[in-house]
């Protein structure tokens, strides 16, 4: 999993979060997190969730776009 399935951020933005092992200690799956768009995924998920091209376009995220901010801290300044 080299780029983010949601925002296509490059590998250097992808953090390995956790590796799931079975009772014998063998690797079953790995969880990743994208530092650009905060997407979290597991490499064992269906392609419709973790493959950029197979995901519904509607759910792509462009971290440069202005998204709504809940209770913007700036309002206190």
């Amino acid at each position: 999993m080299s780029t983010c399935p949601r925002c296509q951020a490059e590998e250097n933005k992808i953090r390995v979060e956790h590796k799931g092992l079975n009772a014998q200690g063998e690797l079953v799956w790995t969880i990743f997190n994208c530092e650009s768009c905060a997407f979290t995924w597991r490499d064992s998920e269906p392609a419709t969730t973790i493959d950029y091209d197979k995901r519904e376009e509607f759910f792509r995220v462009d971290p440069e776009k202005p998204y709504p901010v809940i209770m913007p801290p700036a309002q206190y300044k």
Partner: peptide, 20 residues
């Protein structure tokens, strides 16, 4: 504030991406 969502919510539709 961090990116959050989408999340499939109780009206049966996804609420969008926000910073929370």
């Amino acid at each position: 504030r961090s990116f959050e969502g989408p999340f499939g919510e109780f009206p049966g539709s996804y609420s969008g991406v926000r910073k929370i």
